[in-house]
Every structure is written in structure tokens, then in C-alpha cells.
Design a protein around this nucleic acid. Structure first.
Length: 219
DNA sequence: CCGACAAGGTCTACC
DNA sequence: TGGTAGACCTTGTCG
């Protein structure tokens, strides 16, 4: 936060950063993996957090989730959610709508048993497809974000910062965000190839690149 | 104080 | 059926 580094990130620097932050990164991922034991209310709260962070700052997402925590558990009423989000989020109406719809969908299709729903998918990619398709407000990036945050591994969270880093490293040409499933999968595959080349697990690389740009989270 | 612009994208309408 | 503008919307930050 002190200064902006205008120079391009190199592989050498990346590996240096990795050895510096490796411990913190692994610790963070362990924290995520502990979420595998979370109950349905906690899993739903995390889902809502990811709905809220799409095109919004992480800080905004955290502030919002604190404000609506009670409402998520009690009624999850759209109008009340909107009121709580107003003044805290960019899109109070739409995001309140998405959250209310998600709650309704999960209740109708899964009796709100998120745990079971998540475990019923044999592989993580089909699970992500399912979420992106059926939860309005979650695209591929946020669906990946969600799964990572509740302890699944092996998915790339291709946000603005990570894409920018990948471009600087020469892994990809442009940092334009993927606009559909196919583009997302292609970019993810490129990142995975790169991660194997430099021997940094995909999830750790993702967290590393993100922390390079934001400086937050890992601290 | 004011204007510009970014903030971990995604959805929908329309072609 | 697949692709692309425009909508969503407000706060915080920086010059």
C-alpha cells in the first residue's frame, strides 16, 4: 500500500515472494479447508458473501455480511435485506434479490441442505458448473471463490488482479476477464500449466498473485 | 469542494 | 444459439 510497483512481475520475483509468504498462504488454505465442517447456515453465509463481492471490494463484502448476518438466518426477506444493504453496497436491490432467490432455490431443491448438495457432486468442476448455472449472482469466478472459501481445492479464481499478474508474467496475452464458461476454462488451464511449471500448487499461486496486488488478506 | 474513476463481475435484453 | 452492450448503483479515494 505504501507504493505502487509499476514494474512487471517476473517469475524470479514470484518465486521469492512465494518463499516469503508460503507459510502464510498454506495457513490460509488450511483455514479454508476447515470450513468443510461448517454447517448449512455457515455455508449459506459464505455463499452470500461471494454473491456480494462480485464487482465490489472485499471490504464492502465483509461489511455487508456483518449487517445481514441475522437476517440470513431468520427470514432472508428480500426487502429487509435490501434495506440492510443500502448504504453499504453498490447494488443493494439486485444483490438482495439474488440472495433471497438463492435461499428459495436451495430450500426448494435441496431442503436447504447445502452440505449434502455439495457432497453429492462427484467432481469439483461439475459442482462449479452447477452453482454457476443455478445460483443467480454467481458466475464462474465467484463460484470458484465460493468453493475455495469453503475448503475445496483445484480451482482458479480468475479475478482482475490475478489476470493482471498472469499477463505480467507472460502466461496470458490479455487481462480481459473471461466472458463465458469456455474462456474461463481455457484461462484456468493456462494458469494450471504455469503453476505446474514453477511448482506452486494452483490454489497457492492464486492466493499469492492476489495478495501481490492487494496486499490484504494475508497481511 | 468537485469531477473522475475504481471497487476480487454478473445478469438481461437484444441482435 | 452464441455474442455483445448496457444495467446494476454507491461509496471511497485521488487529483
Amino acid at each position: 500500500v505504501l507504493c505502487f510497483n509499476a514494474e512487471l512481475l517476473t517469475e524470479k520475483e514470484l518465486l521469492e515472494r512465494y518463499s516469503e509468504k508460503k507459510h502464510l498462504i498454506k495457513q490460509r488454505l488450511r483455514e479454508f479447508s476447515e470450513k468443510r465442517n461448517a454447517n448449512n447456515e455457515e455455508l449459506f453465509e459464505e455463499l452470500c458473501y461471494c454473491i456480494l463481492t462480485a464487482n465490489a471490494s472485499a471490504r464492502m463484502g465483509i461489511r455487508c455480511i456483518q449487517a445481514i448476518r441475522e437476517e440470513l438466518r431468520s427470514g432472508c426477506d428480500q426487502a429487509r435485506l435490501e434495506k440492510l444493504l443500502r448504504g453499504r453496497h453498490r447494488y443493494p436491490r439486485k444483490r438482495a434479490e439474488y440472495i433471497a432467490r438463492a435461499k428459495k432455490y436451495l430450500e426448494e431443491e435441496h431442503r436447504f441442505n447445502l452440505k449434502e448438495m455439495l457432497n453429492n457432486h462427484e467432481d469439483i468442476h461439475s459442482l462449479r458448473d452447477y452453482l454457476a448455472k443455478n445460483i443467480t449472482g454467481l458466475g464462474y469466478k465467484e463460484a470458484s471463490h465460493y468453493l475455495r472459501n469453503i475448503g475445496f481445492t483445484g480451482l482458479a479464481i480468475l479475478d482482475k488482479h490475478v489476470l493482471n499478474s498472469l499477463r505480467e508474467l507472460g502466461v496470458i496475452r490479455e487481462e480481459k476477464p473471461p466472458r463465458n464458461r469456455q474462456e474461463y476454462l481455457e484461462l484456468e488451464a493456462e494458469m494450471k500449466r504455469f503453476s505446474e511449471g514453477i511448482r506452486i500448487p494452483l490454489d497457492e499461486l492464486d492466493l499469492l498473485l492476489w495478495s501481490e496486488k492487494t496486499g490484504e488478506v494475508l497481511k
